[in-house]
Amino acid sequence: MASDRINPGHLNRMITLQYPVSTRGTSGSVKEAWTDWATQVPASQGKLTKPTEGFKQDILIALQYVIWEFHFLDMAIEGFEVPDTRMRLFDEDYPKRIYTIEAVEEIGQRAGWRLYTKLKNA
C-alpha cells in the first residue's frame, strides 16, 4: 500500500515538468513546443522497474517505468492546474532522460503528487 506522506529526506532529485503548447509556423503548419510548468522541483525517484522489452515499428526497444513523488505545487496556468498525462518530466540530474507521464495520483490531502512515468528512448 502506498504511503499518504512524502518523506522529506527522500527528496533527493530535481525535476522539471513541462506542458505542450501548439504554435502555428509561417507555412501554417501546427508545431508542438514545450514550456516549463515547474522547474527545480525537489522529488524522490521511487520504484524503478526492471526494463522490459517491446516492439515499436518492428524495432526492439526497452521500456523503463519510474514512479516520482513531490510536494504539492500551487500552480495557476489555465488548463494545467495540476500535473496530467499531457505533460512530460525531465530528470535534471540526468538531462537526457525525458519521461512521459502515464498516470497521476494525489498523495494524501494535498500533500503531493505521485507520477507514474515511462522513460522515453533518446
Rank of each mutant, 00 (worst) to 15 (best):
A2K: 15
S3G: 11
D4H: 12
R5L: 11
R5K: 12
N7E: 15
G9A: 03
G9T: 00
H10Y: 05
R13K: 09
I15N: 01
L17A: 01
Q18L: 05
V21Q: 05
S22C: 03
T23S: 05
T23P: 04
S27P: 15
G28M: 08
G28A: 00
G28C: 04
W34T: 06
W34Q: 15
T35G: 11
T35E: 06
W37S: 09
W37G: 10
W37N: 06
Q40I: 07
V41P: 09
A43D: 03
S44V: 13
Q45E: 10
G46F: 05
K47E: 11
L48H: 11
L48Q: 14
T49A: 09
P51G: 03
T52L: 15
T52P: 13
T52E: 14
F55M: 14
F55G: 12
K56C: 14
D58N: 10
D58R: 12
L60Y: 09
I61P: 05
I61M: 12
A62N: 10
Q64V: 11
Y65Q: 15
Y65T: 14
V66T: 09
I67E: 07
I67C: 12
I67S: 10
F70T: 09
F72T: 10
F72N: 08
D74V: 09
G79W: 04
E81A: 09
E81Y: 09
V82K: 10
V82D: 10
D84K: 03
R86E: 01
M87E: 04
D93Y: 07
Y94K: 13
Y94V: 15
P95S: 11
P95M: 11
I98N: 02
T100L: 02
I101L: 00
E102Q: 14
A103L: 04
E106R: 05
I107N: 02
G108H: 00
G108M: 01
Q109C: 04
Q109M: 04
Q109T: 07
Q109N: 09
Q109E: 04
A111Y: 08
A111D: 15
R114Q: 03
R114H: 00
K118L: 09
K118T: 12
L119P: 02
L119D: 01
L119F: 03
K120V: 06
N121Q: 14
N121G: 08
N121L: 12
N121H: 15
A122S: 06
A122L: 04
A122Y: 01
